[in-house]
Amino acid sequence: MAKAETTDEGVARGSAEPSAVSMAVLGVEGALVCAALFVAVLGAQEGPGGGEPLAALAVVPLMLVLTLFAGGVLTAAYVVPAVRLAHWTARQLTGRTAWWWIPPACTLWVLPALAVPAWHLAGLGLYAVTLPPALAVHVTVVRARAGRPVQPCAAILSWGALAVGCVVIGGGAVVAVG
Rank of each mutant, 00 (worst) to 15 (best):
T94N: 09
A128M: 11
A113G: 09
A55I: 03
A58D: 13
G71H: 10
T6D: 12
G170C: 13
V110A: 15
A136W: 03
A40F: 09
V141H: 01
R91F: 07
T130A: 12
V65I: 15
V83M: 03
A56W: 11
V25R: 03
A58N: 05
S19H: 09
A113S: 14
G170I: 12
A90G: 11
T7S: 12
C153A: 15
P132V: 11
P117M: 08
G125L: 12
I169T: 13
P103K: 02
P103S: 02
E29Q: 15
R148Q: 15
R148F: 15
G10I: 00
T75D: 14
G172M: 08
A113L: 13
E17N: 05
A70F: 07
A55W: 05
W119V: 00
L66T: 10
V167A: 06
D8L: 12
W109F: 15
P48S: 06
A4G: 12
V150P: 09
V21F: 03
G147P: 12
G27K: 13
A40V: 11
W119R: 01
A176P: 01
G71A: 05
G165F: 01
G165Q: 02
A2P: 15
G172F: 06
G49L: 12
G72N: 06
R143I: 14
L32R: 01
A44W: 09
L66N: 06
A12N: 13
M1H: 04
R84Y: 03
L157C: 12
E46Y: 12
G71N: 01
L135C: 08
G47L: 02
E52I: 10
G147W: 08
A173S: 04
A173C: 06
V60E: 13
S158K: 10
L114P: 01
G51V: 09
V168L: 14
A2D: 12
L68E: 04
P112F: 05
A161R: 04
A146P: 10
H87F: 02
P149F: 03
L131W: 02
R148I: 09
L121C: 11
A44Y: 09
V116I: 14
A70V: 06
R148K: 14
S19G: 13
H120S: 06
W109C: 10
T67H: 11
V168S: 03
V174N: 09
E52K: 11
V141G: 07
P112C: 10
R96T: 08
A76I: 08
V33D: 08
G171P: 11
A163M: 00
V25Q: 00
P61N: 04
C166V: 15
G43Q: 08
R91D: 05
G47V: 04
A134H: 01
L62C: 00
W119L: 12
T107Q: 06
V80Y: 02
F69M: 05
A40T: 13
E29P: 02
L66D: 08
L121S: 04
V25I: 11
P81C: 04
A31E: 09
I156S: 02
F38P: 00
V129L: 15
S158M: 10
K3F: 03
M63A: 14
L74A: 15
L37M: 12
A2T: 15
P149S: 05
G147C: 05
V25S: 00
T140E: 02
I169K: 00
